[in-house]
Amino acid sequence: MDKKVEILAKKVRYDILDMLQHRGYGHLGGSLSLVELFAVLYGKQMKYDPKNPKWEGRDRVVLSKGHAGPVWYSTLSECGFFGKEKLMTLNDGGTMLPSHPDRTKTPGVDMTTGSLGQGTSTAAGIATALKMKHSDNYVYLIVGDGELNEGQCWEAFQYLANYKMNNCIVIIDDNKRQLDGYTKDVINPFSIEAKMKAFGFNTQTVKGNNLDAIDEAITKAKSVTDSAVCIVLDTIKGQGVKFFEELLDNHSVKFNTEEVNRATDDAKASLKKEIEEEEQHV
């Protein structure tokens, strides 16, 4: 993997920790589990222009699990869509970075999301429009494993599969946890890969912390011409920071204890050192 993509992942992980610690709370676990995916998308796979966010030739991202907005905001900032100082305005009154993505507020955000499940339908609609325009651009639809409790997801998946919408790459963040606990305890998802295959998707499962595996899976998905496509990311909620991986209540974290803040400070210091060392060799 290109060293710049590896550095981008570390910068995005640092930014998530920094902005949420500054805010004092936020959806940490499900943002950290998507860091490597966003680094690969914006560092290698996607077509976009930060100076012209509405460029017609761009690929689109629909973050259906909208509570993971911090990973998207951090990535957009690192890729030049807006200044990094804006990250510290997360959730402020009048901010361009609300709790959940809003296409009317944030450069680089093409679809407002937050009510779980609805992003699947809007992504299907965007993909249909691109097909009708004979566009070769992709829609990256990112869905949470807990979000799959919503029936709307499966309605949208049926549509995508029926019409063989291979330009909408469905990516499921299987981090095994949701707001109220482990997914297997809330509503057992059984095998997500098997279900997506049964729905008619060409489906792959890859480690969600492996940049090369994610990159290869996306490239393979783009080669599929006769069916809808899905990538299941086998991730860990709080991925990349051991303290938060092991924190049971890591869906939405409050930075109100010495232990949480010390762990955050230590992780940030380690990431900052790694970033500085690696940038010297790029």
Rank of each mutant, 00 (worst) to 15 (best):
E279Y: 09
C230H: 01
I236F: 15
T89V: 01
Q21V: 06
N167F: 11
E56C: 11
I275G: 02
I172Q: 03
V253E: 01
K176A: 05
C79L: 08
L97K: 01
G43T: 04
N202Q: 14
V224N: 09
N91P: 06
L271M: 00
I16W: 00
R262N: 15
K44W: 05
E155D: 09
K10R: 03
D92A: 04
Q21I: 01
S227R: 06
K195R: 12
S227E: 08
S191P: 03
N261I: 03
L130Q: 00
K197D: 06
Y14Q: 15
K237L: 06
N175Y: 07
K4G: 14
T113G: 02
G108L: 02
G146F: 00
E216S: 10
K268L: 05
I142L: 05
Q45T: 08
A194M: 03
E85H: 11
L17G: 02
T75M: 06
L87H: 05
A194Q: 13
T89Y: 02
L90T: 07
I172Y: 00
A263Y: 05
A123P: 00
M165H: 11
T205S: 13
K3G: 14
Y25T: 04
E56H: 15
K272F: 13
M132P: 12
L37W: 08
S115E: 06
P107I: 12
I142A: 07
N188Y: 12
G80M: 10
P70G: 06
E155T: 10
N209A: 03
L32Y: 06
G30V: 00
A39W: 02
L148A: 01
Q178G: 04
H134S: 09
L32T: 01
M132E: 12
D145C: 04
K268Y: 00
S77L: 06
V170Y: 08
T112R: 11
S64Y: 00
D59F: 09
G238M: 03
G80Y: 13
M111H: 14
E245A: 00
I192P: 00
D266A: 14
F157W: 09
K131N: 13
S121W: 09
N209S: 12
G69I: 13
F243A: 03
R103I: 12
D185I: 03
K268T: 02
G29D: 06
G69E: 04
K47R: 10
D2I: 15
Y14D: 06
E6Q: 12
K54F: 13
L28M: 00
V282N: 13
M46Q: 07
S252T: 14
K54H: 15
I231E: 02
E246Y: 04
G94T: 05
S227Y: 04
G181C: 05
Q239A: 08
K268G: 01
T122D: 09
E278T: 15
M19E: 10
G80W: 09
K3W: 07
T112Y: 14
K10F: 07
N256Q: 00
M165D: 10
L247E: 05
K220C: 15
F244V: 08
D266N: 11
N166Q: 05
K222F: 12
V143S: 10
K164M: 03
V35Q: 13
N52C: 13
L247M: 06
L8Q: 02
L211M: 11
N261M: 10
A194H: 10
E276P: 08
I192C: 02
F199W: 13
W154K: 04
I275T: 08
Q45M: 09
I142F: 01
K176D: 07
S115G: 09
M165Q: 15
V229G: 09
H251E: 10
K254M: 12
I142W: 05
E259V: 08
F157N: 05
F38K: 13
